[in-house]
C-alpha cells in the first residue's frame, strides 16, 4: 500500500536526484562551490549517522575522530606508499578501525565504564591516534596533512578518485548517504536495538533476561566505527587532502557530537540535519567573519575561531533546552498535532 510516507520519500529522493541541476539554475557560475558544500554535508551526514548508532544508546564516544582518521589515513597511506587501490585500502582501513573500536570498547563494556568515563577514555584514544598521525610525519605529513597521490587526471575508478567531476562526486556521496540511512533503519528495526535500549537503561535487568550486554555493545561499536572509517576514507578521496585537524582528532569528535545532538540523536534525519546545520554555520561564519573588517580588526586572526566558540555555546543550549535535537523535537510536535 502506498502511504503518505512513501510519497514524501519519493518526492525527497526525486529532488535530491535533480539537485545538481537545480543548483546550476539558481547559482550559475558558482554552482561548483554550492555543490561542494552539499557533498561535504552528505559525507558528514553519513559519518554523523555512523556515530549516532552508538550515541543513541548512551554510548557517548569522543573517539570517532580517531575512526574517521584511521579510515582516511590507512587508505591514503596504502595508496601512496604501497600502491594499493582504495578498493582494497578502504576495507582494510575499516577493518583496522573496527579492531581498534573493539579493543577500546571491550574493556570498557566488560568493566561497565559508561557515561563520562566512557567519553573520557574514548577522548584519550582520539588523542592517541592524532599523536600517532603527527608523530609519523615522514609518511603522514605530520600536522600539515598529506594528499593521496593523484592518478592520471584525477578521475579514476581504479584509484577511486572523482574530485574533478563534482556532479559524479555528488551522486557517489548521495548513494553512500542513502546506504547510511538504510543501515540506520535496519538497526532501528532489529531486536538488537531493543537490547541496547534496555542495556542503556539498566544493564543488570538487561542481563537478567538473557541479553549479553557486552556483545551487543561490541556489535554496535564495530558497525559504528566501520561506518565512520568508511566516511573518513571517502572524505579523503573527495577532498584529495587529509589533515589531523580536518579528519582526525578531538575537533572532529566534538563536531560529530555537537552536530548529532543539535540535529537529533534519536531520529533518522537528525544527524543529517546536524550536518546541514554545522556545515552551513561554519561556512557562513568563515565567509562572514573573513569579510567583516570590523571583526578582523577587533579580533584579528582569532575571529576565525569564533565558530568553535559559537558551537560550544549552542551545544550547551541544545543539551539544556532541546535534548532531542531539532528533528526529534519537531517530530514530537508533529505527532502531538496529528493525535488530538
Amino acid at each position: 500500500m502506498i502511504t503518505q510516507k512513501h510519497i514524501s520519500w519519493a518526492i525527497g529522493l526525486a529532488v535530491l536526484l535533480v539537485l545538481p541541476l537545480i543548483i546550476k539554475q539558481i547559482f550559475p557560475g558558482t554552482d561548483r562551490y554550492y555543490l561542494h558544500l552539499v557533498i561535504q554535508i552528505l559525507i558528514w551526514a553519513f559519518i554523523y549517522t555512523g556515530w549516532s548508532m552508538m550515541g543513541r544508546f548512551g554510548l557517548t564516544s569522543l573517539g570517532h575522530g580517531a575512526f574517521t582518521g584511521i579510515g582516511a589515513y590507512v587508505t591514503v597511506m596504502l595508496w601512496n606508499f604501497a600502491g594499493i587501490t582504495p578498493w582494497i585500502g578502504i576495507p582494510v582501513a575499516m577493518l583496522v578501525a573496527t579492531i581498534a573500536g573493539v579493543l577500546v570498547g571491550y574493556p570498557c563494556f566488560r568493566m561497565r565504564i559508561t557515561g563520562h568515563y566512557f567519553a573520557l577514555l574514548t577522548l584519550a584514544f582520539t588523542e592517541f591516534v592524532r599523536l600517532c598521525i603527527v608523530g609519523l610525519r615522514d609518511w603522514t605529513g605530520g600536522s600539515l596533512g598529506t594528499q593521496p597521490a593523484r592518478y592520471g587526471d584525477g578521475l579514476s575508478l581504479y584509484a577511486m578518485q572523482f574530485e574533478p567531476n563534482r556532479v559524479l562526486a555528488y551522486y557517489i556521496v548521495l548513494a553512500i548517504w542513502l546506504v547510511g540511512l538504510i543501515i540506520w533503519v535496519k538497526v532501528d528495526r532489529s531486536m538488537d536495538r531493543y537490547a541496547l535500549d534496555a542495556a542503556s537503561q539498566d544493564e543488570d535487568a538487561a542481563a537478567s533476561v538473557g541479553i549479553n550486554v557486552t556483545r551487543e555493545k561490541l556489535k554496535i561499536t564495530a558497525l559504528s566505527s566501520a561506518m565512520c572509517a568508511f566516511g573518513g576514507a571517502i572524505y579523503g578521496q573527495y577532498q584529495m587532502y587529509i589533515g589531523p585537524d580536518t579528519i582526525a582528532g578531538l575537533g572532529v569528535s566534538l563536531n560529530i557530537v555537537f552536530a548529532v545532538i543539535a540535529g537529533g540523536i534519536w531520529s533518522l534525519f537528525g544527524p543529517t540535519f546536524g550536518a546541514v546545520f554545522t556545515q552551513v554555520l561554519a561556512e557562513t561564519l568563515r565567509v562572514g567573519l573573513r569579510g567583516s573588517e570590523t571583526l578582523s580588526k577587533l579580533l584579528g586572526q582569532s575571529a576565525l575561531a569564533l565558530d568553535t566558540f559559537i558551537y560550544g555555546l549552542l551545544l550547551v543550549l541544545f543539551i539544556i533546552y532541546m535534548p532531542k535535537g531539532v528533528v526529534g523535537t519537531l517530530a514530537e510536535r508533529w505527532k502531538r498535532k496529528a493525535r488530538p
Binding site: 531486536m191 531493543y194 537490547a195 535500549d197 534496555a198 542503556s200 537503561q201 533476561v209 538473557g210 541479553i211
Partner: peptide, 17 residues
C-alpha cells in the same frame, strides 16, 4: 525498561532469554 513499551519490554526477553 522505561524507554520501551510494555510489549517491547516483554518481547525483548522472549527473543534474548
Amino acid at each position: 525498561f522505561r524507554n520501551l513499551s510494555l510489549l517491547e519490554n516483554v518481547a525483548l526477553s522472549a527473543h534474548f532469554g
